[in-house]
């Protein structure tokens, strides 16, 4: 698979605290990558390092297969970003704000009108940003990140301060950019519900460490219903099931069965009973994607 962003043992330390610790981020080309984690988990610090705003303490970053440290400018020409709360110049109009950035990229002036159209701010083109609502400032930030038609778009909590219809609008915009322009998009959030409908890949970060990184389908599968068994002797039960070639996850005090075909469950139980194992309980566990996410991050937090 071709990765647009690839980090290797990326680490950032502030004093004694590790804000980001040995993170191996892999963002596949053309996909929407959801970067999840509770507040303060290290998402923004990671993103700042991806943009060269902060120097990593350790590790390296490759974007478009090039080393960020050596080819920062070349890389940033093809990257659009919105980091945390939007940056803007309150005394300038929406148009002038974008013009300060357009000059650097050297893209045609017409692009300003285009991006304002995309985020639906055309009507306030010549109004000072001072009077904008938080949602409008956020959309202006997204507009500026699109000015250079980036190949990689990095959006840090882009739906902050937006109302529900604004959130849906941004979500649709991200889907469209991915599909029509083939952009690779990194979108961070502390809410799973914000990205589970659009992301293809997910990375979950907690306390500075990447604790899950795979496709959203794998995460879904992990969240599906599971059957757990309580028996009298887990060790023996374990051996019996293995020797019978049956799939199950074992621990010292439970057996969980990933497949829940009724017939399979019946078979497993029969084999155990035939081998004189007492089966006390057969329970069905239901977990939503959200609770999987919460559990992942909670385990790390030690709650």
């Amino acid at each position: 698979m071709e990765y647009i962003v690839e980090t290797n043992k990326l680490t950032k330390r502030f004093g004694k605290e590790y804000a980001v610790e040995a993170v191996d981020l892999r963002i596949p080309k053309g996909e929407i990558y959801g970067f999840l984690g509770p507040n303060g988990a290290g998402k923004t610090t990671t993103i700042r390092m991806l943009l060269g705003l902060m120097e990593p303490t350790l590790g390296n970053i490759k974007v478009f297969g090039k080393d960020l440290k050596r080819e920062r400018i070349g890389i940033l020409k093809k990257v659009g970003s919105l980091v945390e709360n939007p940056s803007y110049y309150p005394h300038l109009t929406a148009y002038e704000n974008l013009e300060t950035i357009r000059k650097i990229y050297g893209v045609p002036k017409k692009r300003i009108a285009d991006v304002l159209e995309i985020v639906r701010l055309s009507e306030v083109t010549n109004k000072k940003v001072k009077g904008f609502s938080l949602g409008m400032k956020q959309r202006l930030g997204i507009a500026s990140s699109l000015l250079n038609k980036p190949e990689l778009l990095i959006l840090d909590e882009p739906t902050n301060g937006l109302d529900p219809s604004g959130i849906i609008e941004i979500r649709n915009l991200i889907k469209r950019l991915s599909k029509e322009e083939g952009m690779t998009i990194l979108i961070s959030s502390h809410l799973l519900s914000e990205i589970d409908q659009i992301a293809d890949h997910v990375g979950v970060i907690s306390k500075g460490k990447m604790i899950f990184q795979d496709t959203i389908d794998v995460m879904r599968r992990q969240s599906q219903k599971k059957i757990s068994l309580k028996v009298n002797d887990y060790e023996r039960a374990n051996r019996i099931l293995i020797s019978n070639g049956m799939k199950a996850d074992f621990s010292i005090d439970s057996i969980t069965l990933p497949e829940h075909h009724d017939e399979d469950i019946a078979n497993i139980v029969r084999v155990l009973v035939e081998n004189n194992i007492s089966v006390y309980r057969i329970e069905e566990e239901k977990r939503s994607l959200e609770s999987t996410f919460l559990q992942m991050t909670a385990e790390e937090r030690g709650l």
């Binding site: 700042r48 943009l51 060269g52 705003l53 920062r72 400018i73 070349g74 890389i75 940033l76 020409k77 990257v79 970003s81 980091v83 945390e84 709360n85 940056s87 803007y88 110049y89 309150p90 950035i101 650097i104 990229y105 930030g141 500026s144």
Partner: peptide, 18 residues
């Protein structure tokens, strides 16, 4: 203050400039 007030440094430095 132009950049400090709204913390626009992150936007400026994330542009392809040294």
């Amino acid at each position: 203050s132009i950049e400090n007030e709204t913390n626009a440094w992150k936007q400026v430095i994330a542009l392809p400039v040294t």
